[in-house]
Design a binder for these strands. Structure first.
Lengths: 230, 230
DNA sequence: GTCTATAGCTGGATAGAC
DNA sequence: GTCTATCCAGCTATAGAC
């Protein structure tokens, strides 16, 4: 086999294929466009145009749009889950103290909002993508999220139960559901509260959001047990 | 003009047009299918097939898909807002007591989950539709929701501020945002907590959801003021 | 006024040249 | 291995027969 050209392609260590760069460009562009505009709202064609590739390349590398979504998701998701586990381990190492609950919540939210990537901006983009996935296609989202996040979420629920011995399991579960809801709603940013407050309150600023949500959600978990069973 | 047939169409009182029944059938079917499957996921064609109408009828009555969405929304939305206002008025008439906060929250959530229709089932369907609208097309949703709900939401935020004099405005706004997030996430039902708990916790049962969320969210509002400004 | 037929697009996926 | 050209299905919206 004759090499057509040695131009501009250094003999990178593990890189076997030339098309690897195209593949990465498609994934990068897809992540950006999906998180900005939504999964179903963005066509493969528009991604490929933006990435400077063609439909055949997408089919060659991924086979289908759903597979592309899955690859965009997989690239960062496990890292977010791992960051959550590591941070929970750190928090639980310390002695029990008055702010344990806050620290558990923060250890869950911060990787969720900023984790999985090398910069916080890239992490935010991935957070928006996961939230879009949840609301756009909950069937696909259910499969992808369960595989990667069930284990770490179970550990967090266990840690919350231990930190709040007065609460029943079902109470912890409902409040964890509420925590997830606040996070997804904050990241998808429907803009209701911005509209209601003339932008005084702006949850799209996720750094400020964390500082408000951590103490607020801690208060939620500290509410008395629900006197109710069905 | 000769009446082609007098069969099966009683001379209903205020009904001027014969096509009124078709119009209502389209709206009813659209509400059901939009709330079950999502707004963008459902095509006009499928709605019309289910309703036994044709594309021309839809164009004649509504002009476009967006107008149909707006009409489905308008039919019940104002009634939900009115129910919220009425119930807030009732709550505030009573003397201040230990459960005022819970009653304000309940007065906001229950019309949101069940209101706007003659049966609670129909109200739940409409709640799912609004949540779908929020996540599917936040541009359209923003316009529709603002017009109908801004006034009542402002009154609730005012009532919450009065009931919680230690909280700053911005704290109340963030917590109201969290309240909205929990409601939308509960109603859209992505099913994460069901998956995490083997269906022990099931937020799609909105009646049980209210009983858990009211005390939980009250705890959230009662959290100490956030020691943080940006 | 009602409906059939279709225009005009856009989507994902693919065959086949090179 | 890469890309052009195309297939085919689905969508909204509308023209035109009756």
């Amino acid at each position: 086999m004759v090499q057509k050209s040695a131009l501009a392609r250094p003999p990178a260590s593990g890189m076997a294929k030339a098309g690897e760069a195209t593949r990465q460009a498609i994934i990068d562009t897809a992540e950006k466009m999906f998180s900005d505009q939504g999964i179903t709202a963005v066509s493969l064609r528009s991604i490929l145009a933006e990435a400077g590739a063609n439909t055949a390349a997408a089919h060659y590398h991924f086979g289908s749009k759903e597979n592309l979504i899955a690859e965009v998701f997989a690239r960062r998701a496990k890292r977010v889950a791992d960051e959550r586990m590591d941070r929970l381990g750190e928090v639980l190492k310390r002695d029990d103290d008055a702010t344990l609950l806050e620290e558990i919540i923060r250890a869950f939210i911060e990787p969720g909002f900023f984790g999985g990537a090398d910069t916080r901006e890239a992490g935010e983009q991935f957070a928006r993508l996961r939230a879009r996935l949840t609301t756009d296609d909950s069937e696909l989202a259910g499969r992808l999220l369960s595989d990667v996040f069930d284990e770490s979420s179970h550990r967090y629920m266990k840690a919350l139960s231990d930190a709040l011995p007065d609460l029943s399991k079902i109470d912890v579960q409902w409040r964890f559901h509420a925590l997830l809801g606040v996070m997804v709603y904050t990241v998808t940013g429907p803009g209701r509260i911005q509209s209601l407050t003339d932008n005084a309150c702006d949850p799209s600023d996720l750094h400020t959001a964390v500082e408000h949500l951590v103490p607020t959600l801690a208060g939620m978990f500290r509410a008395p047990p629900t006197l109710f069973t069905t």
